[in-house]
């Protein structure tokens, strides 16, 4: 027993040393935690740098993921100050959980577009040309981009038969840019992100499924004022300009 006690004391000593090592250092910057939908990564990182330049001793930390994953993480206690969702459904989930600190504000919109590999090898022209023997990849109906796909498909009165229903819009885009798929349905902003690897084809039915992005501060945030300032930056003139540069539409 004595030997056991001595070992336990040694273990405790090691733990204490480790803890005291971690707490050193000078004044830490205030960290603003922004949880944002994956599609917002490029414009938000730009805005984050701008925000840091305007606020001394503030570091903006982003978590980019699918909106539903983010809501789940916030519900489980992830320390988010600001939440920007890719759809209203997931923002509603946050409200149901009583975690919204302010009324959400719509700040951007996004519509679907047909993406084809560079050179458009299958000769796609519009939504109707996706039906005949084309390797078409879309999002699964369970995720927001897939729900939008179902809507435009119904609006056009078409029955699409995709070879794959992917988990996320990024997965769809990858199948297109790698040439595995002849065409995919993604957001306008994704085509912009893909650069030369993909071409976009607009279609009129896309207006039936306009995706609106809401943003809000999260209840229980340790930096509510800073969070609100970030929301103001996004919804303000500068934010709107950066978003437009990345292909987003106005709210």
């Amino acid at each position: 027993m004595r030997r056991m006690l001595r070992s336990a004391a040694a273990a405790a000593a090691i733990t204490l040393t480790a803890v005291s090592c971690g707490s050193g250092g000078t004044a830490e910057p205030t960290i603003l935690q922004v949880f944002a939908a994956a599609s917002l990564q490029e414009p938000f990182e730009e805005l984050g740098e701008q925000f840091e330049a305007e606020h001394e001793d503030v570091a903006v930390e982003f978590t980019f993921a699918g909106s539903s994953t983010l809501v789940e993480q916030i519900q489980q206690g992830a320390p988010a100050d600001v939440f920007a969702s890719a759809d209203e459904k997931n923002m509603d989930k946050l409200a149901e959980a009583g975690l919204e600190a302010a009324e959400p504000v719509d700040f951007a919109s996004n519509t679907l577009m047909i993406a084809v590999p560079a050179g458009n090898p299958a000769g796609i022209t519009d939504l109707a040309s996706l039906t005949g023997g084309v390797n078409l990849v879309v999002c699964a109906p369970e995720v927001p981009c897939g729900a939008a796909t179902t809507t435009v498909q119904e609006a056009a009165g078409l029955e699409l038969s995709p070879v794959s229903e992917e988990q996320s819009v990024t997965d769809v885009l990858n199948k297109v840019t790698s040439g595995e798929a002849d065409a995919g349905l993604v957001y306008v902003t994704d085509v912009a992100k893909a650069g030369d690897a993909a071409e976009g084809i607009e279609f009129p039915e896309s207006q039936e499924a306009v995706n609106t992005y809401p943003i809000t501060t999260v209840d229980g945030s340790t930096n509510p004022e800073l969070g609100q300032e970030f929301v103001d930056l996004v919804t303000g003139e500068e934010g709107q300009q950066v978003l437009a540069e990345h292909g987003f539409g106005g709210a």
Binding site: V137, V163, S164, E166, Q167, D171
Partner: peptide, 11 residues
Amino acid sequence: ITFAGSLQGTT
């Protein structure tokens, strides 16, 4: 998910 895709009953 990277290579085969995702379609009910097939992949």
